[in-house]
Simulated assay, not measured.
Amino acid sequence: MGALNLLPLIVLFAVVGGVGWVCYQIFLYSNELASRGVKKMEKKNVVFTKDGAKVGVKEVSTERYTDKTQRAFVKTWNAAQEGGAPVSRSSTTR
């Protein structure tokens, strides 16, 4: 008769242990998911610190920057010289 009185206590411990195990597995999965997210963001030059997120900018050499700027300027200049620049409809003469 004494063993029957302990049965609900054993069932209670089993249920609490099962719920604890499930919660622990969820905790492990969420930590793994967070670390994967951090690694993926670091590949995109975003680093999370205590102070917040820091975004790194990919370095562009001065020569490449100058080349791109000059190319855009030349395209604009050529379009203006050829009359290829768009004309506003409101500024037409009557």
Rank of each mutant, 00 (worst) to 15 (best):
M1S: 15
G2H: 15
G2C: 09
G2Y: 11
A3D: 14
A3E: 13
A3Y: 09
L6E: 15
L6F: 01
L7Q: 15
L7D: 14
L7G: 02
P8W: 01
I10G: 01
I10L: 13
V11A: 12
L12I: 05
L12R: 11
L12G: 10
A14R: 00
A14G: 06
V15T: 08
V16N: 14
G17I: 01
G17H: 05
G17E: 07
W21M: 04
V22E: 14
V22A: 14
V22P: 08
C23Q: 13
Y24H: 12
Y24T: 01
Q25H: 02
Q25E: 11
Q25L: 06
I26D: 15
I26S: 07
F27M: 02
L28K: 03
L28D: 12
Y29A: 04
S30A: 03
E32H: 00
E32N: 01
L33W: 04
A34D: 09
S35Y: 01
R36H: 13
K39M: 10
K40A: 15
K40P: 03
K40I: 08
M41K: 01
M41N: 07
M41V: 05
K43R: 15
K44L: 13
K44C: 11
K44V: 14
N45K: 05
N45C: 04
N45Y: 03
N45R: 04
V46D: 09
V47C: 02
F48Y: 12
F48V: 10
T49L: 08
T49A: 03
K50R: 10
D51Y: 00
D51R: 06
G52E: 06
A53W: 06
A53F: 05
G56V: 02
G56Y: 02
K58W: 10
K58T: 12
K58R: 13
K58D: 13
K58H: 13
V60F: 11
S61A: 00
T62A: 15
E63V: 02
E63T: 07
R64F: 05
R64T: 15
R64L: 14
R64A: 14
Y65E: 14
Y65Q: 10
Y65T: 00
T66L: 11
T66P: 03
D67L: 05
K68I: 10
K68D: 15
Q70W: 01
Q70N: 10
R71H: 08
R71E: 15
A72N: 10
F73P: 00
K75P: 07
K75Q: 09
K75E: 12
T76N: 11
T76V: 07
T76W: 12
W77C: 02
N78L: 11
N78W: 00
N78Q: 12
N78Y: 02
A79R: 13
A79I: 05
A79H: 08
A80P: 09
A80E: 12
Q81H: 03
E82Y: 08
E82P: 01
E82A: 01
G83K: 07
G83I: 01
G83E: 13
G83R: 04
G83Q: 06
P86S: 11
P86I: 04
V87R: 09
R89V: 04
R89A: 07
S90K: 06
S90G: 06
S91T: 14
T92F: 02
R94W: 02
R94H: 03
R94Q: 00
R94Y: 03
